[in-house]
Amino acid sequence: MNIHEHQAKAVLAEFGVAVPRGYAAHTVEEAAQAAEKLGGPVWVVKSQIHAGGRGKGRFEGLGPDAKGGVRVVKSAADVKASAEEMLGRVLVTHQTGPKGKQVNRLYIEEGAAIAQELYLSLLVDRDTSRVSVVASTEGGMDIEEVAASTPEKIISFSIDPATGVFPH
């Protein structure tokens, strides 16, 4: 199942997980309205495509110095300008390959002071048909690099569907 970040956060919020407030936007006007509803002083404008590495990705046609698909901005005008630049463009990341993916939706989220970044993933292991849990205290922005250089900092285990998760 592929869901966007804003959809995943809505599900988490339904179950009481604290997530930053945010709004999906399909147009520049919706992005500007989201910024107004959230208030400031910091917003995060996030491309919603089914691929990782969005922040480090690059938009086709904007040159090598252009900002990526996740941007921290400090004014409502910058939210609007980022939306104008991102919507309808193709974002190329290490996971999309050279063809990239067109950005048709943004997630405008309130900024937050991040004390610590952690990584947690639940995924289906197709070889075992079990859910695997992957976690790290090293954050998620460069989890591939963590896996390559310090694999001991990543913990993973599979959940047996017959017995579930044990407390230990």
Rank of each mutant, 00 (worst) to 15 (best):
residue 117 E to Y: 06
residue 110 E to A: 11
residue 96 T to I: 13
residue 141 M to G: 05
residue 108 I to H: 06
residue 102 Q to H: 12
residue 148 A to Y: 00
residue 110 E to G: 09
residue 130 R to H: 14
residue 124 V to C: 10
residue 111 G to C: 08
residue 129 S to N: 13
residue 102 Q to D: 04
residue 116 Q to D: 01
residue 154 I to S: 07
residue 110 E to I: 00
residue 127 D to R: 03
residue 104 N to V: 05
residue 119 Y to E: 04
residue 159 I to H: 05
residue 103 V to Y: 12
residue 122 L to T: 09
residue 132 S to A: 14
residue 105 R to C: 13
residue 140 G to Q: 10
residue 153 K to S: 05
residue 147 A to L: 03
residue 122 L to N: 05
residue 145 E to C: 00
residue 149 S to G: 00
residue 124 V to K: 12
residue 162 A to Q: 09
residue 139 G to F: 08
residue 112 A to Y: 00
residue 110 E to R: 05
residue 150 T to E: 11
residue 151 P to Q: 07
residue 132 S to D: 01
residue 153 K to A: 04
residue 157 F to H: 13
residue 155 I to E: 10
residue 147 A to V: 12
residue 152 E to N: 04
residue 152 E to K: 06
residue 159 I to M: 09
residue 156 S to W: 12
residue 104 N to K: 15
residue 108 I to Q: 05
residue 161 P to M: 13
residue 105 R to S: 11
residue 133 V to Q: 05
residue 99 K to I: 07
residue 105 R to W: 03
residue 121 S to I: 04
residue 108 I to Y: 06
residue 160 D to E: 15
residue 123 L to N: 05
residue 149 S to E: 12
residue 102 Q to I: 13
residue 97 G to F: 10
residue 130 R to M: 15
residue 132 S to W: 04
residue 157 F to S: 14
residue 106 L to C: 12
residue 125 D to S: 10
residue 95 Q to A: 05
residue 97 G to V: 13
residue 150 T to A: 09
residue 158 S to A: 14
residue 146 V to E: 10
residue 131 V to Q: 03
residue 135 A to Q: 11
residue 104 N to C: 08
residue 130 R to V: 02
residue 112 A to N: 05
residue 152 E to F: 01
residue 162 A to H: 08
residue 137 T to I: 01
residue 125 D to G: 07
residue 117 E to M: 02
residue 119 Y to F: 14
residue 160 D to W: 09
residue 150 T to H: 02
residue 106 L to H: 10
residue 145 E to M: 01
residue 161 P to K: 07
residue 113 A to M: 02
residue 144 E to R: 00
residue 116 Q to R: 13
residue 98 P to N: 01
residue 105 R to T: 15
residue 149 S to L: 06
residue 97 G to W: 10
residue 132 S to C: 10
residue 107 Y to H: 12
residue 102 Q to K: 15
residue 150 T to Y: 06
residue 108 I to K: 07
residue 104 N to G: 13
residue 112 A to Q: 09
residue 136 S to Y: 11
residue 123 L to T: 15
residue 120 L to K: 04
residue 159 I to A: 03
residue 116 Q to N: 02
residue 110 E to T: 10
residue 146 V to P: 02
residue 114 I to T: 02
residue 98 P to H: 00
residue 135 A to C: 13
residue 139 G to M: 03
residue 99 K to R: 14
residue 137 T to S: 12
residue 158 S to R: 14
residue 120 L to E: 07
residue 152 E to Q: 12
